[in-house]
Design a protein around this nucleic acid. Structure first.
Length: 466
DNA sequence: ATCGGCTCGCGCAA
DNA sequence: TGCGCGAAGCCGAT
């Protein structure tokens, strides 16, 4: 049963009688497993004795998109292609603006089903289609556990304000989703589209920024996401409680890039975590807190704060105190390029930057330290915000996510409380060397050097003064 | 090693 | 209107 609160009608036009298929316009939920939009499309098709066609619009014009992001995305689409073929569902990927691709394919469709995204470009795409479409368009929200407006109808101030609202409702939404039997398999020729057999020619055709190369550390797609999840639950989860604060221990599940591209459903992860055999109940609780409460606080932030991608999204108390300290002397001052090059005096900070550049990932706790230092070592907080957002969105596989905007905002006080005043930070929380009391920072540097070498980065980190 | 103070605003109890 | 409390802070006193 798919909860009706996951479904919204974006275009009220009647379904088309003379149609060849039901179209699922896939953009956010890039998976063929545990995808409620896909299952709704199957139900709609079965009701009309039609096959299902899944269409995906691939644009190189998405803000800040680069070869790293697209290689991962295309691996995910390869996984989608093989699973849909097995299930007898048609699949076409076309170059173009997603709503244009969807509109074109909708002309032979009885209805259109799409998934939901929360960022401004994703919302705009769906609005564009909804205005132009000549058939009914249904949106199915499959990448949040609790649909955004069910959790809250306003911008939440902090985790503690949204937590009870989510916890009250989440059990209704943590339910299995079985694939529906398909009445009619896709039989005709597949509409013209890109071949996904090889990703390199597609990257070439897209002409995306090659300065940020693909990574070996993470391979995209549902199959890979599920394999990692199972390995984590078998092995890592038993160490999660004790080790999760330790970036050098690799005790994390690394689901964030997969969640960002919709390669795996958060509901599927939540079910698996609840069922995990060797887990302590505390570990389950803290994992679900991050997966659901924290992640959906980020979704609430981008859904209800239109300025989420600018410094204006930082709460007023924090902007005031940072402004009052804008002229404080900075003991170290770097340009955005120096940050990006990992050329600071701080060896541990540089290691974090190298992990990000070389592998597209950074441990959560280090993301905080790393970000707080960019605030501390930039000439102005507004500039630090821009630097952080750019680095996040450029190098992280999970960049350009709702979480990216929340994490950057948190550095400046978003969803946080004030603390005793410090230079530069004012009453915004600062972070310093205490961070490294909690884990073996030198071991972390060695881990990063090994990971970077595996990605083809030569040489060791410069010694640095710290 | 541990503890209190620093400081703001939401949301609930009253 | 008062009060408890919050993403993992820092500093100084004991």
């Amino acid at each position: 049963m798919i909860q009706t609160s996951r479904i919204q009608t974006l275009c009220e036009a009647p379904p088309r009688n003379e149609a060849d298929y039901v179209l699922y316009w896939m953009q956010q939920s890039q998976r063929a497993v545990f995808n409620p939009a896909l299952e709704i499309a199957v139900e709609e098709a079965n009701a009309r004795d039609l096959p299902v066609l899944v269409g995906f619009g691939l644009t190189a014009r998405y803000p800040e998109a680069n070869a790293r992001h697209y290689a991962f995305l295309l691996q995910g689409l390869q996984d989608v292609a093989s699973r849909l073929a097995e299930r007898g569902i048609g699949f076409v990927v076309r170059l173009g603006e997603p709503p244009d691709v969807a509109l074109e394919l909708s002309r032979r469709g009885a209805i259109v089903v799409c998934d939901r995204g929360y960022l401004k470009p994703q919302v705009a795409w769906r609005r564009t289609l909804a205005i132009a479409a000549e058939v009914r368009v249904l949106q199915v929200e499959g990448d949040a556990v609790v649909p955004v407006e069910v959790a809250s109808t306003k911008h939440e101030f902090a985790a503690r304000t949204i937590r009870p609202k989510i916890q009250r409702r989440m059990d209704e939404f943590i339910e299995p989703l079985e694939p529906r039997p398909l009445r009619r398999r896709w039989a005709g020729p597949t509409p013209a589209g890109l071949s996904l057999r090889e990703t390199a020619p597609v990257l070439q055709a897209l002409g995306v920024d090659n300065a940020v190369p693909p990574v070996k550390r993470f391979t995209g797609g549902y199959g890979e996401a599920r394999r990692r999840l199972d390995a984590f639950l078998e092995d890592g989860f038993s160490r999660y409680g004790a080790q999760r604060g330790k970036p050098e221990a690799a005790a994390a599940s690394h689901m964030s890039p997969y969640l960002h591209y919709g390669h795996i459903s958060p509901v599927e992860i939540a079910l698996a975590v609840r069922a995990a055999a060797h887990a302590q109940s505390e570990d389950r609780t803290s994992y679900l807190e991050e997966l659901i409460v924290r992640r959906e606080l980020a979704i609430n932030h981008v859904a209800f704060e239109p300025a989420y991608d600018s410094y204006a999204a930082v709460p007023e108390w924090a902007r005031k105190t940072l402004a009052a300290h804008a002229l404080d002397p900075r003991p170290h001052l770097y340009t955005p390029d120096e940050f990006e090059a990992g050329a600071t005096h701080d060896r541990y900070w540089n290691a974090a930057m190298l992990e990000m550049r070389a592998t597209g990932y950074m441990h959560n706790h280090l993301r905080m330290y790393w970000g707080k230092k960019v605030l501390e070592w930039s000439a102005r907080p507004e500039q630090a915000f821009e630097t952080l957002l750019r680095l996040n969105n450029r190098w992280f596989l999970d960049g350009r996510d709702a979480n990216s905007f929340m994490n950057v905002g948190w550095i400046f006080g978003l969803h946080d409380r004030p603390w005793g005043p410090q230079p530069v930070f004012g009453t915004v929380r600062s972070m310093g060397r205490n961070t490294f009391r909690k884990f073996d920072a030198d071991a972390y540097v060695r881990v990063v050097e090994a990971l970077a070498a595996h990605e083809g980065h030569s040489g060791r980190l410069a010694a640095g003064a710290v």
